[in-house]
Amino acid sequence: MKPFKPRSTGQHTPVRGRTGLADALFSATQQRVLALVYGSVASHSDTAHSDIDLLLVSDALTLEQVYTVLTPVEQQLGRRVSPTLYGVAHRKIEAVERVG
């Protein structure tokens, strides 16, 4: 598969396909990480200047590891990635509160 190359002109630079993010996160922890893209990229309303909002759920990752992993991905995509990291326990507590 060809590496993603962002366009340098135009209003919209799509972020689609394989970016290497999942592989990089897995190599940082050797564990699976739930990673969800949300915001303008997820709704396909992003522009060339939009950041990529990324929700991560993992007990194995630290924010320091996340930023280390994201730096080369940001350079490859030509976009800033804005991560939010939650632990698995936090997500379970939040889910129970929503149900109860």
Rank of each mutant, 00 (worst) to 15 (best):
S8W: 03
S27Y: 08
V96W: 00
L54W: 13
A95F: 01
A35L: 03
S40H: 12
P72R: 03
L54M: 07
D46R: 04
T13R: 09
T9N: 08
Q75R: 10
E97T: 05
R79F: 06
H49M: 03
Q76T: 15
G17C: 09
A24F: 05
I52R: 01
G17P: 14
Q65V: 04
V41W: 11
S43V: 07
E97L: 14
D51E: 07
M1T: 14
Q75E: 13
R80F: 02
S50Y: 07
H12M: 10
A60Y: 00
D53C: 10
G20A: 02
R79C: 03
L55I: 00
E64W: 04
R32L: 11
V81N: 04
V66G: 12
G20W: 00
G20Y: 12
F4Y: 15
V73Q: 13
H44I: 02
Q31I: 01
A28S: 15
D23K: 05
R91Q: 13
K2E: 09
G17T: 14
I93H: 14
G17Q: 11
V37A: 09
T47M: 12
S27R: 14
Q76I: 08
R32I: 06
G100Y: 09
T71L: 15
S8G: 11
S43P: 00
V96N: 03
E64D: 10
D23P: 00
L25D: 02
L54Y: 10
G39I: 12
T84F: 11
T84L: 13
D51C: 00
L61H: 06
D51L: 03
